[in-house]
Every structure is written in C-alpha cells, then in structure tokens.
Design a protein around this nucleic acid. Structure first.
Lengths: 259, 259
DNA sequence: TGCTAAATCTCGAAC
DNA sequence: GTTCGAGGTTTAGCA
C-alpha cells in the first residue's frame, strides 16, 4: 500500500513533473508550493506576475492558487478540470482546462519548494445550523415567533417576483407575507417583500400585510418599510435554532414514548 | 537565515504543537494535513466530523479548511484572526477567533500527517480584465458600442433605487439609462433597470429610454423587457476590453509622439 | 463602521 | 443544460 503522504522538498523541475503526472493520473490531492506566474483565460482574463504561492489540486479536478494572504484564491478552477503538466523553458507548467464555459488556468513554476501528494479519506458529516432555511422552518413550526395567532398556510410559495418565505393568515383573517433574513435586512430585502406583497394584493384583492423578519434592520430601512406600509419583526437565528432543536427532541421523545 | 520551507512529517502531537506555536508567532504561512474535527460558532454554527483535511493558515490571520474535494473551504475564517494552539485530550487543537462579528473556528487534529511552515514572498502584480467596470468604462469611452449618436452624460449616477451605470442622451435628445451586466442578464437586472427608469421618468418628466446591455439575456427576460418598455443591446465583455486596450495604446502613442 | 453592488462568484435545486 | 435564489457568501468602493 502506498504512503498517505509523499513529499518532495526542493525537487528539480523534472522530478516535480514526474511526481506530479503520477499524482494527477491517480487522482490524488496535491499541494504545490513555489515561485510561479499564473494566467487565466475564459469568462474574464487575468495575469499574475512572479511570486510565491500555494497551489492545491483536489481529487474532483478543482484547483486553487493561494497567495500568502487573503481568504480567496487569486486564481482557481472549479471541479471537473482536465490537467496537463509539462516543461516550458525550464519551468514546470500546469494547465487546468474546463469547458462549459471554456476556460483555463495555467501556472508556470520556475521553482518548486514543496510538492506533497496526499491520499486523504474524508467521509465526515457536515452540519450547518441557524441558516435562513432553519429560521423559516422554525417560523413554520411556531408562527408565534412572528406574532400570536398567526397561522402558516404555505412556504416557498412561487409568485412572479420570486419565492415567498412564509405565507400566513393573522388572527383577524388577513393574509400575511413574511420575508425572513438571517442577517441585517437591507433596502433590497424591503423592496423584495414589497414586490411580493404588491403581487399578492393584485391577485388576492384583499388586505395583505407584509412582515420583514430579521435579527436587525439596516439604517433607513425602517423608514422605507413605513413608506411601503410594511412591518418589521425582530427574529433571532439562534432562538430559531433552539426551537428546531426542541422540536426535534420532542419528536424523539414522542417516538420513544409512542414506540 | 531561516529555511523557506520547514517540514514535519507525521510528527507527534507535541512536536506539531511546538512547531505550530513558533510558526504562528512569527506569522508564517502554515500548511497542516491530517485527521481532524472542526467546529464553528458565530453568524451560524457548524460541526464537521472526523476526516482528512488540508488546513491553510496565512500571514494575515486567515484560515481555510479544505476537504479533498470542492472549490470552497468547508470552514474558514477571514483575515485578522487571533490564533490559539494547545493540547486537548491527546489532540492538537487550533482555535481561530475574530470579533466583529464574534465568531470562532476550532480544529481538533487527532493525527497530523504533514506540517509545513513556509516563508513566502509574493509581490507579483495581479491584473484582471473584462470585468463589469471595464465594460462601463468602454461604453463611456465609446458610447457607439450601445448605439450610434449616443452621448454619455454621467456614470454611477446616484438615484433613489441605487446607481445608474451610464446616463446618456440619444441622437434625438432623449434621456437614456443604460444598465450593464457582464454575464447573462436575468429578471433581476431588468427590474433594476425598470426602477431606475421609473425614477428618472418621475424626476425628469420627459421621455426616458432604458437599455439593458449584456452578452445575453436569460429566458423570458426579453418578454419582461418588452412589457416594461425597455430595450436590450448585446454587449461583449471581451470587445469592451479590446476598446480599452486600444484606447490605452492610443494614449501611450500620443504621449510618446507629444513628448 | 455601515451599506451597496459585483463576482472568473460557487452551489444546489427546480424546471 | 438553464435559470434562479442563497451564501457563515467575500470583496471593493463610499458615505
């Protein structure tokens, strides 16, 4: 069985090329550190002059070029690339090509400091909580998070301008459109809600309330809401997550008790 | 002078911790490969179970956790983090904390396959062409890209709904609002243009044309434009980039000839 | 610092 | 294959 980690330190260009070709054909994760130039052609075009970078090639054919700073890669290619590796004027050149859209990144190393070929096994589950979807599910489960007496009718209702997060009826029988934002709700969110409410009003021909539910509003948005005859309701993502967790454990209890 | 690349292969947790602490305090770029769990708390919450990952820590205090597949990091922290490294039940634990917003990522390695500490020098210039801003500048330089006889008045004009990309007058003296998109223009772009045009009409009290300029339209958007009494003009990002390049070399020629 | 709009956005789902 | 909306979006540009 092959080693999980194979490392070449300061390899010659030829040594690096040999190891790289083998690693690419066996679909390994590859780490390359060295001095390189990068050119991109496709949806846009870019040129990056000589400097030290970290290049990460993954099993699914994605590639990232990282500078020593910044969250985002300076150049990249999404999963599904074809790779070519070769020599070019004493340099190691790697080309990552994809079609649809047709684009390519080519990286030219004049020096390689480190080449690591990795056999990684990762089947770990990933779970993200307190997303906007979680908040929506929480409101459907407990509409009182928005206001007492509210009853949910549908969610993700398709209307012309987009999707209504939660569509409900209040204690007095009026239609309510609820737009949920996980972060600070800005002007765009208010306008989005406005479009939905306008559409429902035109269709339903009765009184329709619009409620923007978010942890907080951006400056000036309260005034915009007032002008548009819409309402704001503070809604905490964490509290929504707790509602979901409670509901899940309740379901579990009922399941155990009932079974 | 210290080595540009320092490597520990399959270090013990204690060895890794020592090297990591030193690397963090000297603000090096750090590559860590190993088996780990990851927890995130902040704007949302996430949990990633055990698996092999590549962790990249940068000079500016950003950190990325990459699985063996996918363009995006599964967990991360933007530049400006504080790092803590320690032992936790025979595991190497790294915590990256930032405030505003308050959030943290903690990574717990039960095994480290590779630790590389890198001294990278990257001063290479990066240039990106054919962005939406390039297209806007090209249209300002040559309004005939949109239509003959068009004259630009202002750009990035502030109006209530946002910023008008290019504000112009056509050959017959009518006001023209131009909205530019670099990619496929969808429904949202048409509605955005509509809002701008409505606003200008209300303000200027005269005939106002709205032109959506983009390489192509999403399906159904042409019909929407027609309903809203707006126009579409095909505009190629690459052609815009060429216009700019031509203009730049012309300026250079004039400069050389004149000087 | 807060807010707005763009991105080689990416990613996923729905049509 | 497109299109559309969300993202722990990030990033750049301004008020």
């Amino acid at each position: 069985m092959e080693e999980a980690v194979t490392i070449l330190q300061h390899p010659s260009v030829k040594e690096a090329l040999n190891a790289l070709r083998k690693a690419l054909s066996s679909r390994r994760v590859i780490l390359l550190v060295g001095s390189c130039r990068v050119d991109y052609r496709g949806r846009a075009e870019s040129k990056l002059e000589l400097g030290d970078r970290v290049v990460l090639i993954k099993e699914d054919g994605s590639i990232l070029v990282h500078r020593p700073y910044g969250y985002e890669p300076v150049n990249w290619q999404p999963p599904g690339c074809m790779f070519q590796a070769g020599l070019r004027e004493d340099c190691l050149q790697i080309r990552a090509v994809r079609r649809a859209p047709r684009e390519s990144v080519s990286i030219t190393f004049n020096r390689v400091y480190l080449l690591a070929v990795l056999r990684l096994v990762d089947a770990g589950a990933f779970a993200l909580h307190a997303t906007e979807e979680d908040m929506q599910r929480a409101v459907l489960l407990e509409p009182s998070l928005i206001e007492e007496g509210l009853r949910a009718i549908t969610y993700e209702k398709r209307v012309e301008p987009g999707f209504i997060d939660v569509y409900a009826v209040d204690s007095q029988g009026r239609l309510v459109v609820v737009e949920i934002k996980r972060g600070t709700a800005g002007r765009e969110a208010a306008l989005q809600l406005h479009r939905y409410v306008q559409h429902v009003r035109a269709t339903a021909n009765q009184e329709v309330r619009g409620i923007l539910a978010a942890p907080r509003l951006a400056k000036g948005v309260q005034r915009l809401l007032t002008n548009l005859n819409l309402e704001f309701k503070r809604l905490d993502p964490k509290k929504c997550a707790e509602v979901l967790k409670r509901a899940a454990s309740r379901r579990l209890t009922e399941f155990v008790d009932g079974g």
